[in-house]
């Protein structure tokens, strides 16, 4: 249970970063932290104490496997996170080119 709580704390740290940080790159890093905490959460869901990896072959005859479905889901989520982060970084680089700064207080051409 303590692991789940720590995982949630990690999520909140990421959320805190997204809300309070003023630097584009720090915001991206905060989103990445949130994503990792969720990845961790999924792995914890599938974890069973003492179980082995869910690969069936002749040598392994273990009765208990960890749940492979969260692992498959998290692999998909990692790929999606990769795409999101790459796009965010690309936009951040372009923004830096236009404004000469990463500070969101100075990037404010949209109002109202």
């Amino acid at each position: 249970m303590i692991l789940f709580i720590l995982c949630f704390v990690l999520f909140l740290i990421g959320l805190y970063g997204v809300v309070t940080k003023r630097n584009l790159i720090k915001i991206i890093i905060s989103i990445a932290i949130m994503e990792y905490s969720i990845n961790l959460f999924f792995i914890l869901i599938g974890y069973i104490k003492g179980a082995t990896a869910p690969i069936i072959n002749d040598e392994v005859q273990a009765a208990v496997f960890v749940d492979p479905l969260p692992q498959a889901m998290i692999l998909t989520a990692i790929v999606i996170g990769l795409a999101t982060t790459a796009l965010l970084l690309a936009i951040a680089i372009r923004l830096y080119r236009k404004y000469g700064t990463f500070d969101i207080r100075k990037i404010n051409s949209l109002k109202g």
Binding site: L82, A86, L89, A90, I93, R94, R97, K98
Partner: peptide, 13 residues
């Protein structure tokens, strides 16, 4: 992705 980001940061505005 790597090359695109490199190109973005290399090219002269």
């Amino acid at each position: 992705i790597f090359i695109a980001l490199t190109v973005f940061s290399e090219e002269v505005p």
